[in-house]
Computed example of a mutant assay.
Amino acid sequence: MDKIETYIDELLEKSTPDRPIWNIEKILQGLKSTWNYIDGCMIKAILEMYAITKDEKYFRFADNFIDCKVREDGSIEGYSVEELNIDNVNAGKTLFELYDLTGKEKYRKAIDLVYSQIEQMPRTAEGNFWHKNIYPNQVWLDGLYMCQPFYMEYETRFHEKKNYDDIFRQFFNVVEHMRDPKTGLYYHAYDSSREMFWCDKVTGLSQNFWLRALGWYSMALLDTLDKADASVGEPYERLKGVFVDLMDAMLKYQDASGMWYQVVNFGGMEKNYLETSGSSIMAYALLKGVRLGFLPENYQTYGAKAFHGICEKYLSEDADGSLHLDGICLVAGLGGKQMRSGTYDYYMSEPVVKDDAKGVGPFLLAYTEMRRAGLIEA
């Protein structure tokens, strides 16, 4: 077994559904882990590990983890639709796969419950979901990843594609309002009301290009396309073009190490650092983009370079032989109680941690794509 499988096995052995070792935020808060996007990222990656290795231990772990959260009536521990927090949709993606694998009716009911939140989400003037009820009129790139792939899968499988137009329109609104035409990159967030202290009062945009937000958005595009019926034609092809355009824009900023910087366009600036989670997402997006036929074959090289760069810089062994993945930005956002400003210094001020699922999950997803491409031997 290779080093990465050893690493993931170590994490699973140290984790329970109530206290997963990779949810650093909950550990620091001293709280039990209930329904959240961080665990959703990790369980999705573990299910991909099962898909690629067919090793039952990954399936058993994922099923047990989600089974503990979902009650027989489909209600979910620690999840409230009324909170209207787009992050909470993300873990719902695991339910589709687990429903297919287990046939547990409670997973199907839970899928409907999560979908009911989508039906109630408040929207900006342009028609995009608010990021959270507590962040009115705001669209964050992160939120596209948290919600749209789930939304698309539900529409494709269970709703006769009735809301495809809504999904495509939300992406195209982001292209219109959040893309910087000079660089091809996207700003982290947009305030449709132009009221938040962190936004430009003319454009409504935050100030910087944060790597992980760009990563989440890349995955949002790719995973939504993956769950869509391509036969819808024009909007599907147009969204594919948006994904390809973003990959080309990001490649201009890829460091010689293969990684990307925390604030993407300021590589080499004081305090800026090569960041693991966003670089892992980019590796995944490039490799999967090639596999799905959206990107030319030679882009695989850039994805593999990113993956190997992360392993070289941040996957290390302790004196006791245990493995760790370092260089992960714990969290970054805008506004809130902390009055986060979105300045360059703000993005440099957030803690950098080891083994957090926001880095480990995407890293494992990139690993499964490396395996699928035959770039790492089983």
Rank of each mutant, 00 (worst) to 15 (best):
H131M: 11
F96N: 03
R60H: 13
G233W: 00
A91Q: 02
Y79R: 01
L113Q: 09
G327C: 08
D9R: 14
G303T: 10
L222V: 09
S322C: 11
P136E: 11
I86H: 04
R108Q: 12
C147M: 11
L375C: 07
I118L: 08
A332N: 06
D166C: 08
V264C: 02
D165F: 13
L325Q: 04
G241Q: 11
K57M: 05
W260M: 03
N173R: 07
M196V: 08
G143W: 02
E105V: 12
G359S: 07
K106H: 13
E160Q: 13
Q29D: 13
I46G: 04
L28C: 05
A373E: 09
L315S: 04
Y7S: 06
A125W: 10
Y261H: 05
D9F: 09
N265I: 04
S80P: 02
M269N: 08
D326S: 11
K227E: 15
E126L: 12
G78Y: 05
M152A: 08
F266C: 00
Y151H: 14
K358C: 05
L246P: 02
R108V: 05
V232F: 05
E83M: 10
M1F: 11
Y50Q: 08
M348T: 06
D248H: 12
D191I: 03
K57Y: 07
L211S: 03
A125T: 11
D229L: 07
K132C: 08
F172T: 04
I134W: 11
L334C: 00
D18V: 00
C41M: 13
V331G: 06
Y154L: 03
R19V: 00
I118N: 01
F158P: 06
N173P: 04
G278R: 01
W22Y: 06
N36Q: 13
L334S: 03
I66Y: 01
T34V: 08
A285T: 07
K288W: 03
D180G: 03
K54A: 14
A45Y: 02
Y37R: 05
D67N: 15
G303W: 01
Y190F: 15
E312R: 15
T94Y: 05
E369M: 14
L101A: 09
Y302G: 00
Q300I: 04
F294D: 03
A366P: 01
I281S: 05
L295N: 02
E105R: 12
G303S: 09
I38K: 06
D165C: 12
Y284M: 09
Y79V: 00
V202G: 12
G74N: 03
V202K: 15
V202T: 15
K32E: 14
D165H: 13
G303N: 04
A91T: 05
L28N: 13
F294L: 11
R372I: 05
I43G: 00
P181T: 09
F168G: 02
